[in-house]
């Protein structure tokens, strides 16, 4: 293999791994946005909780699969509580008010975690070892394969859920037209609750998958949340496909940018690309392009 090709392959592996995580976080944003037109800035905290609770359970001697299940369940409960206590009472408030509420929730969850679980960084073991695998001269960690595999499975499961179950269709219907859905007998409040639960689940899964690579910490969700939001916007808000493409694209821009142009400016490059896309396509790559109702 020519070295330049191996180098490129290495950048691609690295970009797709980060991109898959961004995609999972972005999907969480999209889900809640679809059901409620709320951007949930506490999404990053779901990611953090997934990782931190997994570590907590592991440190109490619980097996990895059980710890993962526990962490996902606990995060989903947090997501449901957030919707019930803080979003539902003000569902008809304006968008900025809702944004501030979710930001407040994020600060609260970070504070709560730092008080109860401490401020240390914690390692979570990789699911299947740390022996790098070689592929055409480039290397990839088994954990990266886990990330890619689980992300693909989650995407498939969501697709099936939204297109082949009554519940999923009800969520879709609500996102298209809340009033019509309500008239058709959809319990809109329940749909909202469900979307927060699902979104917390996605966040927790992302947090658990990436914890072995980055270690986990009470503030680890801040940056991942922001990148997930950027990915969701890049792809087009509310579009599932958009969230996935946006996430992968963001990961690739970062790794190729760092590899070929400048590692100092790789984050800036990601945002420059997003701005450029928005200037040309104001609804993102796959956003709804319909005219607004007047």
């Amino acid at each position: 293999m020519p070295p330049a090709f191996v180098e490129l392959l290495q950048f691609l592996f690295s970009g797709i791994t980060s991109g898959a995580i961004y995609a999972l976080v972005a999907l969480g944003f999209a889900l809640i946005y679809n059901a409620s037109h709320v951007i949930n800035f506490a999404q990053g905290e779901f990611v953090m909780l997934g990782g931190m609770i997994t570590w907590l359970l592991l440190s109490h001697g619980i097996d990895l699969p059980l710890a993962i299940a526990g962490a996902v369940a606990a995060t989903v409960v947090v997501g449901l509580a957030l919707e019930k206590l803080a979003i539902e009472p003000v569902r008809d408030a304006n968008v900025v008010t809702l944004i501030i509420i979710t930001i407040g929730a994020g600060i609260f969850l970070r504070g709560l975690t730092s008080v109860t679980l401490g401020k240390d960084l914690h390692a979570v073991p990789a699911f299947s070892g740390n022996e790098p695998l070689e592929l055409l001269g480039a290397t990839i960690m088994p954990q990266s394969l886990w990330i890619l595999g689980v992300t693909a499975a989650v995407v498939l499961a969501l697709h099936l859920f939204f297109h082949f179950t009554i519940l999923g269709k009800a969520i879709l219907a609500t996102s298209h037209n809340r009033l019509a859905a309500r008239l058709m007998g959809v319990n809109v409040n329940f749909v909202l609750l469900l979307s927060f639960g699902l979104s917390a689940l996605l966040g927790a899964v992302a947090g658990i998958l990436i914890a072995p690579i980055t270690a986990t910490h009470f503030e680890v969700g801040i940056m991942l949340g922001l990148k997930g939001f950027a990915a969701a916007i890049l792809g087009g808000l509310g579009s599932g496909l958009g969230a996935i493409v946006g996430g992968l694209l963001l990961g690739l821009i970062e790794s190729l940018g760092a590899g070929y142009i400048s590692s100092d400016y790789k984050d800036a490059m990601a945002f420059v690309v997003i701005l450029g896309v928005l200037f040309l396509m104001p609804q993102g790559l796959f956003g709804k392009r319909g005219t607004e109702r007047v």
Binding site: E7, F11, I210, S263
Partner: peptide
């Protein structure tokens, strides 16, 4: 001479460049 941001989750790209 490469850099990474403190919250980055992956430095493979920079290290690949250094390695070569």
């Amino acid at each position: 001479d490469e850099t990474y941001a403190p919250s980055d989750t992956d430095m493979v790209a920079q290290l690949t460049k250094i390695k070569n």
